[in-house]
Design a binder for these strands. Structure first.
Length: 413
RNA sequence: CGGGCUGUAGUGUAACGGCAGCACGAGUCCUUUGGGAGGAUUUAGUCCCGGUUCAAAUCCGGGCAGCCCGACCA
C-alpha cells in the first residue's frame, strides 16, 4: 500500500501517559492508539501484525485438530454462577435496570459457555475427544492496567478448549498443545520457556505457562541455565542460584512475560454443566477438560519489548505488517519498483510521500519492516538499495530483480 | 481495592490571586533533499462541577482522568 494513503502517521514523540516501551513504540509508529487506560485500538499497521500472529496461531491450532468457532461476549449470569465465579473481581458486569442484579457479564474467559455447548452435543464416548477454539476479545476489569499493551482491560485472546473421555487422554492432548505452543512462539520470533505455574481462578492443579524473558515482565521465574526447566515464583520453592530439581544445574531468577498458558481443568466445568458421556459399558461419566490461552495482543507487545533498538521496532518477518518498505527518496520515482514488487506478490509499504531522505529513513526504522528497498536519484535507473532492518550500515546496491529475489527468499542470490 | 504522585495546546514548559506565553510538533505555501533541513504562515490549551474573591490556571471542596508502588492477573 502507498504510505501517503495510510491514515495514521508516525510521531516523533511518545504520548506522555505511556511508560512501557511496547506502548511507546507502538503508539509512535501508528500501530496502536490508547482509548483509555488498558483499552487500545489496533490501527491498520498494528492490526496487520495482529492478523499475522493470529494466522500463525490458527495454523498450529488447526494442525492439532482444533475447530475454530466464535462465542459470545455477553454472558448470562447463570454461567458464572454455575461455577462460583460470578464473584471473581476482574469480571465486568453489565447492568440493565437500576438496583437489579446485573444480568450479564462480559466474557473474561469461556469455560462456562463452551461447557454448556459441549453438553448439548456430547452423549457418548464416540463423541470424544474434540477441541474447539476461538479468537475473542476478553474483558477483565484489571484494578490496575499497566505495562502498555501487556495488561489491558480488553484484549484479544485465542482460547482453546479440549474435551476427553479420560484424564489420560486429556494429558496426552495437553502435551500436544504444549508442542503446538512452542511452535507458535518460535514462529513469532520469541523464545518462550515452558514453566510450571499455579492455576489461579481456573483450576486447583498446577498448570504450565509460556514465559518470555524480558525486563518488562510482571512474573518472576526460576529458570535452569542448563536444561531450561522453569518454575514460576508463585509456586516455586526454589531461589536464585539453587540447584535445578531436574538436572542439578543452577537456576536463576528472571523477569518474564507470560504469553500463554495451558490448564488441565479436569471435571470442574463438566460437573457444573452436567457435561457427561456414556462409556463403552453405558456408564455415565464426566468429560475431562483442558483450556489453553494465548494473548494475541500481548504477544505483539512482547515482540516489541524484545525486538527493538534505539531507532524503533524490529519486526520478525513472520509477523511484520509488511515484508518490504520501499522508500522513494526525493528526486526518485519508486512507482516502477512498487509495481514490480506487487506483481511478485511481495507485501510492500511504498513511502511515496514528499519528505526528506532523513525523515523517511527515521520513520522506516521506527516502523520496523524487515526489508528496506531504497530508490534514489543517486543510483542508476534500475538500481535500488536493499537493507535488512536491524543490520548496521548502508544498504546494498542491487538491480531491482535481484532485490525482489532477495526480499522474497531472504537469501542472497 | 489500599498507598503515593500528577492534571496548562499533540509533546515539553512558563505565568506573585491581575492580558494564558514560549519552544518543539502538526497543517498550508515556498526553498531544500542520503539520516528527523530552512523561511513564511496557520492551528491548538488551563480536566469537570461548585465555592471564596472586584478578579481563579493559581486558594478551598467535590468529582473525573492518567501514571507509579502493592494486592491480583493472558
Amino acid at each position: 500500500m502507498k504510505q501517503s494513503e495510510l491514515f495514521t502517521k508516525v510521531a516523533r514523540e511518545a504520548p506522555k501517559d505511556e511508560v512501557a516501551l511496547n506502548a511507546k513504540l507502538l503508539a509512535r509508529g501508528g500501530f496502536s492508539y490508547k482509548n483509555s487506560a488498558g483499552v487500545y485500538s489496533y490501527l491498520p499497521l498494528g492490526w496487520r501484525v495482529m492478523k499475522k500472529i493470529e494466522g500463525i496461531i490458527r495454523e498450529e491450532m488447526d494442525a492439532i485438530g482444533g475447530q475454530e468457532m466464535f462465542m459470545p461476549t455477553l454472558h448470562d449470569k447463570h454461567y458464572l454462577k454455575a461455577t462460583g465465579r460470578w464473584g471473581v473481581d476482574v469480571v465486568f458486569k453489565v447492568n440493565d435496570a437500576a438496583g437489579k442484579e446485573p444480568p450479564f457479564s462480559l466474557g473474561w474467559t469461556h469455560e462456562e459457555p463452551v461447557s454448556e455447548i459441549a453438553a448439548h452435543y456430547v452423549s457418548s464416548y464416540k463423541d470424544l475427544p474434540f477441541a474447539a477454539y476461538q479468537f475473542q476479545t476478553k474483558f477483565r476489569n484489571e484494578p490496575r492496567a499497566k505495562s502498555g499493551l501487556l495488561r489491558g482491560r480488553e484484549f484479544l485472546m485465542k482460547d482453546l478448549y479440549s474435551f476427553h473421555a479420560s484424564e489420560g487422554d486429556l494429558f496426552e492432548y495437553y502435551a500436544r498443545v504444549a508442542e503446538a505452543y512452542k511452535k507458535i512462539f518460535a514462529r513469532c520470533g520469541l523464545t518462550a520457556h515452558y514453566t510450571v505455574a499455579a492455576g489461579g481462578d481456573f483450576t486447583v492443579s498446577h498448570t504450565h505457562e509460556f514465559q518470555v524473558i524480558a525486563p518488562a515482565g510482571e512474573d518472576t521465574i526460576y529458570l535452569c541455565g542448563k536444561c531450561g526447566y522453569a518454575e514460576n515464583k508463585e509456586i516455586s520453592k526454589l531461589e536464585d542460584g539453587a540447584a535445578c530439581p531436574q538436572c542439578g544445574g543452577p537456576v536463576g531468577a528472571k523477569q518474564a512475560i507470560e504469553v500463554g498458558n495451558i490448564f488441565p481443568l479436569g471435571t470442574k466445568y463438566s460437573e457444573a454443566f452436567n457435561l457427561r458421556f456414556a462409556d463403552e459399558r453405558g456408564e455415565k461419566k464426566y468429560v475431562a477438560m483442558g483450556s489453553y490461552g494465548i494473548g494475541v495482543s500481548r504477544v505483539m507487545a512482547t515482540i516489541v519489548e524484545v525486538s527493538n533498538d534505539q531507532n524503533g521496532i524490529i519486526w520478525p518477518e513472520s509477523v511484520a505488517p509488511f515484508r518490504a518498505h520501499l522508500l522513494a527518496l526525493p528526486g526518485a520515482d519508486g512507482a516502477g519498483a512498487y509495481a514490480a514488487l506487487q506483481k511478485e506478490g511481495v507485501e510492500v509499504l511504498y513511502d511515496d510521500r514528499e519528505l526528506s531522505a532523513g525523515e523517511k529513513f527515521a520513520e522506516a526504522d521506527l516502523v520496523g519492516i524487515p526489508w528496506r528497498i531504497v530508490a534514489s536519484p543517486k543510483l542508476g535507473g534500475d538500481t535500488v538499495e536493499v537493507k535488512r532492518r536491524g543490520k548496521a550500515g548502508a544498504g546494498r546496491p542491487a538491480s531491482l530483480s535481484e532485490a525482489i529475489a532477495l526480499v522474497k527468499t531472504g537469501k542472497e542470490s
